[in-house]
């Protein structure tokens, strides 16, 4: 795709951090980029471990029905995309040890972005949803995006 370094910004309350769009899965990453901004509610994972997830009906990411670069491990500070047959895309944002999985075992997802720096405040905000409950998230293109 050759897009240089595209960056996005993720905000939860007052906590923000920047991520770099990955080029490893260009079709999915491009669909993710074209679907921004994404506004929604993050809820703590119940199977995946230290991660939150948000679903979005935004196009074109919601129309993807394949997993371009299947991974199970969701490393801290990574965003992955998982298609959902109900016409939405599920984004998982990890803040610790996490794995794409469900009731019957491992599932797969495509990584699309990676945190710049440590993003400690944002990751703490993700982790706080476990005890504190769901909250709003905003995922946008960074103003100086490239």
């Amino acid at each position: 795709m050759g897009w240089g370094m595209k960056r996005i910004e993720v905000r939860v309350g007052d906590a923000t951090a920047r991520y770099t769009l990955l080029e490893d899965a260009p079709k999915t990453a491009d669909a993710f980029w074209e679907s921004l901004p994404i506004e929604g509610t993050i809820t703590h994972a119940r199977w995946a471990g230290s991660a939150v997830w948000v679903k979005t009906p935004n196009q074109p990411i919601a129309a993807l029905d394949d997993i371009e670069l299947p991974v199970t491990s969701i490393y801290p500070g990574t965003i992955v995309v998982r298609p959902n047959p109900r016409g939405v895309a599920e984004l998982f944002l990890s803040y610790g040890v996490a794995e794409s999985r469900g009731p019957v075992g491992r599932t797969y997802a495509t990584p699309v972005a990676e945190l710049d720096g440590d993003g400690a405040e944002l990751l703490a905000a993700f982790g706080a949803t476990w005890q504190g409950g769901s909250t709003e998230v905003s995922i946008t293109r960074a103003e100086d995006e490239s």
Binding site: H44, A45, R46, W47, A48, G49, P103, W130, Q131
Partner: peptide
């Protein structure tokens, strides 16, 4: 005490 949802164990 407090009861919290599982993060890895499902429902």
């Amino acid at each position: 005490t407090r009861v919290v949802h599982a993060s890895r164990s499902g429902n």
